[in-house]
């Protein structure tokens, strides 16, 4: 709790340096027209960033006539308020939400763990610079690859070369729908493509760790594996928070792999974004109320994670 306070203080210091000086002017600051203008601009920008979400929210709570007859950003008036869209959207999406969680959570945890171990190995390795740089460059480039470039091979791989349906027989015996084969494929794919970013995020963290501490552990007789288990892993908790949050958002939000690996929107294993991408479109036109409700429901988990851990989220982005 003290950390944000400290930060605010230092900001105050700087504003003192740039705008005024000394203590008295600081009191006066509140009546400063410059600052008043600044806050007005900041609030205006807030309106801009929240407008689409606000419009979506109020629209989702209106009847179909309400959507057409009232302003898109005004709250529903009496008689046009309806939760029908939310109920309908939830009905359609609940299966997808569960499926998304089923593959996004394990994929996030596994790719974060693999990334952490790999980054540790790379940090420990005392290689010649050009080899290490080449190696790391492969990981960094792996983050930025447009997935289109691997799409056809990945589809071929899962459909013709790695038929895992047979391996999952115990699941089918338990009564799980066979469509879930696709979800397992999607999970493994998400793990594989999440590894580069996870590795690089952990690597940037481990690079700043006290090397003497690792060396001390080596001299204390610990093997590389023991050092990871007893020293590095316990000290990685803050970075795990960052990576897990970032990676979860990425995997949950991704449409492309879901689109090509899951048979169809109507599949039992369809994740939420896939269902959402086809929601509200029908013969008689668009049902915006339903679409907005669906969008909000799909976004809720990531928004919740984001609001709870916004610090970690922005750290993950800035690295």
């Amino acid at each position: 709790m003290t950390k944000p306070d400290l930060k605010d203080d230092s900001n105050d210091e700087r504003s003192k340096g740039t705008a005024d000086g000394g203590r008295l002017p600081r009191l006066r600051k509140r009546f400063d027209y410059h600052r008043l203008g600044l806050y007005a601009v900041l609030l205006g920008i807030v309106a801009f960033y929240l407008a689409p979400i606000e419009a979506g929210l109020v629209t989702s709570l209106k009847t179909r006539t309400g959507v057409i007859e009232t302003l898109p950003m005004s709250p529903p008036i009496y008689g046009e308020f309806s939760t029908a869209s939310w109920i309908a959207a939830f009905d359609t999406l609940s299966r997808g939400l569960l499926n998304s969680a089923l593959y996004a959570v394990p994929a996030t945890v596994i790719s974060a763990f693999i990334g952490s171990v790999a980054a540790y190995g790379l940090t420990q390795a005392n290689w010649k610079r050009r080899y290490k740089a080449t190696f790391l460059a492969l990981f960094v480039a792996g983050i930025f690859i447009p997935y289109q470039a691997v799409l056809v091979p990945v589809t071929r791989f899962w459909s013709n070369y790695a038929q895992i349906e047979g391996l999952l027989t115990p699941l089918w015996l338990l009564g799980v729908d066979r469509d879930y084969t696709d979800l397992v494929e999607l999970m493994i794919t998400s793990i594989a493509y999440g590894i580069p970013i996870c590795t690089i995020l952990f690597r940037s963290y481990y690079k700043n760790m006290n090397i003497e501490m690792i060396e001390a552990a080596r001299l204390d007789g610990a093997s590389l594996r023991r050092i990871y288990r007893r020293i590095v892993l316990p000290l990685s908790t803050p970075m795990f928070a960052v990576v897990l949050i970032y990676q979860f958002t990425q995997i949950w939000n991704d449409l492309l792999f879901a689109l090509v690996l899951i048979q169809s929107t109507s599949s039992d294993a369809a994740p939420a974004v896939l269902i959402l991408s086809g929601l509200g479109v029908s013969q008689e036109g668009m049902n915006f109320s339903l679409q907005m409700a669906g969008a909000l429901i799909t976004a809720l988990p990531t928004i919740a994670v984001y609001v709870m851990f916004s610090e970690e989220f922005s750290e993950g982005l800035a690295t």
Binding site: I45, W252, L255, V273, L276, A295, T298, Y306
Partner: peptide
């Protein structure tokens, strides 16, 4: 608030 949209899916 300014960063909030970043947490949303492209689809949303």
């Amino acid at each position: 608030i300014y960063l909030l949209p970043m947490s949303l899916s492209f689809v949303v």
